[in-house]
Design a protein around this nucleic acid. Structure first.
Lengths: 349, 349
DNA sequence: ATGAAAGCGCTAACAA
DNA sequence: TTGTTAGCGCTTTCAT
């Protein structure tokens, strides 16, 4: 021991953020060596290491990643672009992404588009201007400009949730078209024939649209068409499910099945039917989509299809995190298989 | 017109991100002027403006905010630190923040802590290292190191959701202690006397804890204590609400009220009671907390208290966005008033 | 094991 | 209205 290092705090008045230089001066070690210590890089003697660490901690130094990123040309950020946070589905995807990124040193940064292509373009532009390590974004439909930006960015891009279409780079998701078709087939197999559809009025929710198209294809294959359909926008999904189910049953009383575009309105419909004493699934069958946890607490399990949200997030993050190691050129397409859950609201043959 | 500007695309091979210099060369204008055009700053003649814009667009130039931020010492990012995204409450706060920040040029960046103080500290450190314009974070309880970092950062800090305690800088929220007390008073006023409590087992959810404490204070003021209480962790809140309500009623059959720590488990309890044909609110009263939209779709409106989530987000963002203009030194404390909603599950005198 | 020099891509400040 | 000169705070590279 040759005397403990002397570290004196600067006057509390100096509101200027601390720099490496401050730590350097306080510890009597060159900026370069301080930098090395703080990043655990290269060989540094244990003695200097401790001196530096002490000084940094005492001063309350927080590195400036902006300068670091500019110098190193590396940014440990992953941009995540999603349409909404209130949809419940997206926070779950995010949670999968966070979990996978946990120990990679990468940090997700979220941007929300409200299902607007122009907003998506703006968010993307903003994100790319921070030169992130990769971008994960929902859907395959984007403005031409957005697509061009992504291609030109030179970073890995993963489009998630949907595989029905062409991606810019990598793609991880399910086929909503197929999901719709499969549900139609299951419903028909169970003997239902007069089928209604209830969904959200969102022309820009391409996945919901594809599901409906697939559903109609499935019905068509059996010579059927949708007997009644309706769309809502805004408000509590649960409440809307109730109200619209009531309205639809009043309008088309001989309906024997209702397919909902998501579990929330489906749950609303289910609650309504149970209250009315309607025989579910005997007289009327019901099904939703997503496989949300909420359904577990309902009096009866609504038929649904798991949309593999967490898994999609995980895989997407894995691609971004793994790309550098594996030296991949990109262009992977991963299609997950949603599992149909008949629950208690589709009768079994 | 002296001939349209000639802009030639670089060979598609150059995967190097474009710089201001590239735009400068392509347009025959100095980097500085290009910079001015791209930021709409200073006086630039319409002719050069167009030349530059064309070149930038043709090349597909995306500015490098890292360099820009380093040079200008300004970062248009606001760090938002929250415990969870699956709690539904936090996405709503976020949505308030986003809405308020919409036209300010500021961008929220989200970090999630999973209710862990050490994780919060780490997230905060990471965020501060990007030198954001401000930080919004949930709660008043932080590690000493976290508090120190925030104080030293020199940027506006807004702690949200809770006002029961001392903040580092500004604070926007409600008093959960008071909310608990008010609910106790309302319940007692309605004539209930044998009261149970059902909540989440989260020692680090300080707001839920304070609510319970306030609730117990309220009961104590009337000479009452909680007759039965239980806590859960994990799983579907709706389902847990069902199961735990059943268990509690079996254990303490003469209970005449159950107070739930959130609306989701409350909704589960309500659904259970209705199924069992229990007279709500006659024989048993129920209340939750948060005022979530979901409740609108339930067969009966659960009593609750609105926790002003969006408003909290808005106000917090307003403080961050407004600070520079108004030259405030900070330290504002804004306490919002949650409104009690008796719904259909507390009997009226 | 440590240090010195150069420069990442942009913008503030000043000059013309 | 436009251009020039210095950095911003860090890391890379090379020297010692």
């Amino acid at each position: 021991m040759r005397g403990s290092p002397t570290v004196s705090l600067p006057p509390k008045e100096s509101r200027r953020p601390l720099t490496l230089r401050d730590v350097s001066e306080a510890s009597g070690v060159s900026e370069m060596t301080v930098s090395r210590v703080l990043r655990n890089r290269g060989d540094v003697s244990e003695a200097t290491r401790e001196k530096v660490l002490l000084a940094a901690k005492t001063l309350g130094y927080v590195p400036n990643k902006i300068a670091g990123a500019l110098a190193s040309q590396r940014v440990n950020l992953v941009g995540v672009v999603i349409p909404s946070l209130s949809n419940l589905v997206f926070p779950e995807v995010l949670s999968g992404i966070s979990a996978e990124l946990e120990d990679t040193g990468l940090q997700p940064v979220v941007g929300v588009t409200n299902y607007l292509p122009e907003k998506e373009e703006a968010v993307l532009y903003e994100m790319l201007s921070w030169r992130p390590s990769g971008i994960i974004l929902a859907g395959l439909e984007h403005t031409e400009a957005a697509r061009a930006m992504m291609v030109n960015s030179g970073i890995p891009i993963v489009e998630i949730m949907d595989v029905d279409g062409a991606g810019v780079d990598s793609v991880v998701g399910i086929s909503h078209r197929r999901a719709g078709r499969q549900m139609a087939e299951a419903i028909i197999a169970a003997g239902y024939r007069k089928i209604g559809f209830l969904g959200t009025k969102m022309p820009l929710d391409h996945r919901a649209r594809k599901r409906l198209e697939g559903f109609e294809e499935g019905l068509a294959a059996a010579g059927l068409t949708i007997a009644d359909k309706d769309f809502y926008s805004g408000g509590s999904a649960l409440k809307k499910g109730r109200e619209m189910t009531e309205a639809m049953l009043a309008r088309t009383p001989d309906l024997d099945f209702i397919y909902y575009s998501n579990d929330m309105i489906g749950a609303g419909g289910l609650l309504y039917c149970l209250e009315q004493g309607i025989d579910v699934p005997g007289r009327l069958g019901l099904a939703g989509f997503n496989g949300v946890e909420l359904l577990q607490g309902l009096p009866r399990r609504l038929a649904t299809m798991d949309s593999c949200r967490r898994e999609i997030g995980r895989k997407a993050a894995e691609i971004i995190a793994g790309r550098p190691h594996q030296g991949l050129i990109g262009g992977e397409v991963i299609e997950l298989e949603p599992i149909i859950e008949l629950g208690d609201t589709i009768r079994t043959a």
